[in-house]
């Protein structure tokens, strides 16, 4: 009796997460192999945090309040350290996928014995962890010197977990944009729009708590907010109730986007045409 062909999802679970953990570990080691180079590339956060320290000091002084929407000056700056870390460290998944589709290297990758999406996610997470760690340390040092120590340590694992889910949400959305290259040749315009949506609706430059009341609830429900605002807010206000609400929202968006990505990947595979050898 012939065995029915194995689906991609089934292959993923049969191979077990060990294979993808190994890919992640390799990518992380690769990212950390040249720490000086990594630190130089992560210097942007030092510049941004220096500007933010001046901006928010002047803003809080002008507002004449020690807390705005429940956030102190220190909270706001530590929020921005994590928000910028997530943003600056997220890998350019869509660009890589679009390049692989355009130059045909996707054909070689698909033939390898792993689930292609699982492999891409492990590579992306490995890159993000390497870069994110260094970026956070550099940005954190600048802010620590300016406004004092970070939020309590016991909240860090909660925020760390939320950051990993945030990068996975970004992976799903970014990979969806990358897969568009099976339909349109150039996905740059979609990448730009996506990055600007994160910038404004994610809360990269401004904690979403500061938005006008009507907008706040709406924007906080979107996936962009669950990528940036949710982990950064958890970091500065660690609280079990808030964690359950925001982490639950993150998992819900991750599930919806993963299903969407799986469906888009299945369709993209049908459109794949490889010429030559």
């Amino acid at each position: 009796m012939r065995r029915p062909p194995e689906g991609a999802t089934r292959r993923f679970w049969r191979a077990g997460p060990a294979k993808y953990t190994a890919v992640l570990r390799t990518q992380l080691a690769h990212g950390l192999a040249f720490p000086a180079d990594l630190a130089l590339r992560s210097l942007a956060i030092v510049i941004f945090m220096w500007v933010f320290i001046h901006l928010w000091r002047a803003t809080y002084a002008g507002a004449g309040q020690s807390r705005v929407q429940g956030l102190s000056l220190s909270d706001t700056l530590w929020y921005l350290v994590l928000a910028e870390t997530i943003m600056l460290s997220k890998p350019r998944v869509s660009t890589e996928i679009a390049r692989a589709v355009r130059d045909g290297s996707v054909a070689y990758q698909l033939a390898r014995p792993f689930n292609w999406l699982g492999y891409q996610a492990a590579v992306a997470l490995g890159d993000a962890l390497a870069r994110g760690g260094v970026t956070f340390v550099l940005g954190g040092l600048v802010v620590w010197l300016a406004v004092g120590p970070p939020p309590p340590l016991w909240g860090w694992p909660l925020a760390g977990l939320a950051v990993i889910v945030a990068w996975l949400i970004d992976f799903c959305m970014s990979a969806l944009i990358g897969l568009l290259s099976f339909v349109v040749e150039d996905v740059t315009a979609f990448e730009w729009i996506y990055s600007k949506l994160i910038l404004v609706l994610g809360g990269v430059l401004l904690p979403l708590d500061f938005l006008p009341d009507g907008w706040r609830q709406l924007v906080q429900a979107l996936p962009f907010a669950h990528m940036i605002w949710a982990p950064a807010r958890l970091f500065v206000s660690p609280d079990a109730g808030l964690f359950l609400r925001l982490f639950g929202g993150q998992l819900a968006w991750l599930m919806v986007l993963s299903l969407g990505l799986g469906a888009a990947y299945a369709r993209a595979q049908k459109r794949l045409a490889v010429n030559g050898g």
């Binding site: 901006l55 803003t59 002008g62 507002a63 600007k196 404004v200």
Partner: peptide, 22 residues
Amino acid sequence: LLNNAAFLAFWLLFFQRFPKVN
């Protein structure tokens, strides 16, 4: 243009909450 509009949108939201900074 869209890129620049995003930054101006940030400032618009910022100044709604904090009308004047220095």
